[in-house]
Design a protein around this nucleic acid. Structure first.
Lengths: 220, 220
DNA sequence: GTCTATAAATTGATAGAC
DNA sequence: GTCTATCAATTTATAGAC
């Protein structure tokens, strides 16, 4: 008997596949156009299903939006889990890897899109804002604070509040280039490549951070 | 003859007053609810005029939105002009005044609201995004870079690219507390007063900044 | 210039056949 | 479960009286 029962075997069942189509279509539209400008009609058309089917899976526009943001939070969290390459030779190199990974993630168009959408609709969906913040920025912040503490234990970083240090290192990376990207503007007027902008921001952040929190050589 | 001709005398003319009412009502609604959730009907009702009158002043919803954002840009720029108290005794105190002013401005509910709206609708109104960025963040950045350069000339700050220094000092102030506020979340789970959060962020930013760029005492 | 009334299109959501 | 067809409300925008 072919694929009766548990959905664990092989590919997804047909209903689940339709549900996926709806979620994907809705995600694209919500992220590209925002909540207000996206109609259920457009979602159904993009997903290749009828509106009735759409409403069979989601009770309404709000529920669909919540599902989209919830999925994005999960991806957000998953990206944070495995993405931290913290096993580098010296602190500067490790910070460089962390910083480049963080900015490459933040500058992704889909990540920028969900930031815009959640911020715009945050007042109307407070739980979603909270979930988003905790699954993304807060999770990274907590992880990095622990990393800082560990490096302090090795003597690779100066004493100080590791949470503040983590906050400041990440904040140093969110320069005006991040604002520009959030606003949908090109990173610089002159045609500066985005990768170079990231590298420059990371290098400058590391220099400043280590000047403040690097190992105390002269004082020992 | 009472007030015929130039609108310079005394108060505004009646048409200009109605125009003001429309702009004020539209501003409140757009900022509170966003572009999509605000209807022209609601604007007319809140302004106390009919929809026909509304359309007599603005050709459509887009034009009204553009006028609102344009006005906010002007206020943004004006706030940046006079708000820089840079005549402080030492560099740390001056940075403190600048930082507190910056965060107090950023945390204002109306300033957060326009950030949200411009970011959300930026893809659909690219010129507005550009105008907003240049009237606000870029203007401040340019001013602060000049300030840094002047302090370097006095020997109060170490050599280095003043633009990078300005970028980093401002970035250091935009910690996760700023993200939280952008998302409409309370600054901290525990009931930490907003003023205390600002003070803590500013103090930490100054300490880190001066550790990296403060006057070189030990090396001279 | 300002209003009331309404046009024309689109919205979120549902009924009922299959 | 999925579709077509449609409801009722709301949307932007305008016509026409005054």
């Amino acid at each position: 008997m072919p694929n009766a029962g548990h959905a664990l075997a092989s590919t997804q069942s047909a209903p689940q596949r339709k549900r996926r189509q709806v979620l994907d279509a809705a995600s694209s539209l919500f992220m590209a156009q925002g909540y207000g400008a996206t109609s259920m009609d457009a979602v159904a058309r993009a997903a290749g299903v009828s509106k009735a089917t759409l409403y069979a899976y989601f009770s309404g526009k709000d529920a669909l939006f919540a599902a989209i943001v919830g999925e994005a939070c999960s991806r957000h969290a998953a990206a944070g889990e495995g993405g931290h390459a913290n096993d580098a030779a010296d602190v500067g190199a490790a910070l460089g890897a962390i910083g480049r990974g963080y900015l490459a993630f933040l500058f992704r168009e889909d990540v920028l899109a969900i930031w815009r959408v959640v911020m715009a609709e945050g007042p109307r969906f407070p739980e979603l804002s909270r979930a988003f913040f905790e699954s993304g920025p807060l999770r990274l912040l907590t992880w990095l604070a622990g990393w800082m503490r560990a490096r302090q234990g090795e003597g690779a970083l100066a004493p100080g509040d590791p949470t503040v240090m983590a906050e400041q290192f990440l904040a140093l990376l969110r320069t005006s280039a991040f604002m520009r990207r959030m606003l949908g503007l090109p990173v610089t007027e002159a045609a500066m490549a985005e990768e170079k902008a990231i590298e420059a921001a990371v290098d400058a952040a590391i220099a400043t951070f280590l000047a403040a929190f690097g190992p105390r050589q002269a004082l020992s």
